[in-house]
């Protein structure tokens, strides 16, 4: 069962990260990047590393995506 969850998380992670690359708007790819962080949190937890999972959750959801968004706000939407 755990193997199946790990496998499906892997597939979802790969799909979401490719989708984050091909987005036209930068804001969309930042949101998808947050999705990549969420998937890796699940993977770290399933691989018995709750410390790393906590770090990844706090940093990817709380700080890094927000810093990206604020930097985007400062730069403006570029084409």
């Amino acid at each position: 069962m755990t193997g199946f969850i790990i496998l499906s998380t892997f597939i979802g992670l790969i799909i979401v990260s490719f989708a984050a690359i091909i987005q036209k708007k930068i804001a969309d790819s930042i949101i998808l990047f947050m999705g990549v962080g969420l998937g890796s949190v699940v993977l770290f937890y399933l691989f018995k590393a709750p410390d790393v999972a906590l770090t990844e959750a706090v940093i990817s959801a709380g700080i890094s995506s927000l810093i990206f968004l604020m930097a985007l706000k400062h730069l403006g939407e570029q084409k």
Partner: peptide, 25 residues
């Protein structure tokens, strides 16, 4: 809590610090 219980449970200094920074945010 995350900071102080770092040696007993998942957590630690980096995580606790970032959580506090998100509160400041």
């Amino acid at each position: 809590y995350v900071m102080i219980y770092g040696h007993l449970s998942p957590g630690g200094g980096f995580q606790g610090g970032v959580i506090i920074a998100s509160g400041v945010l």
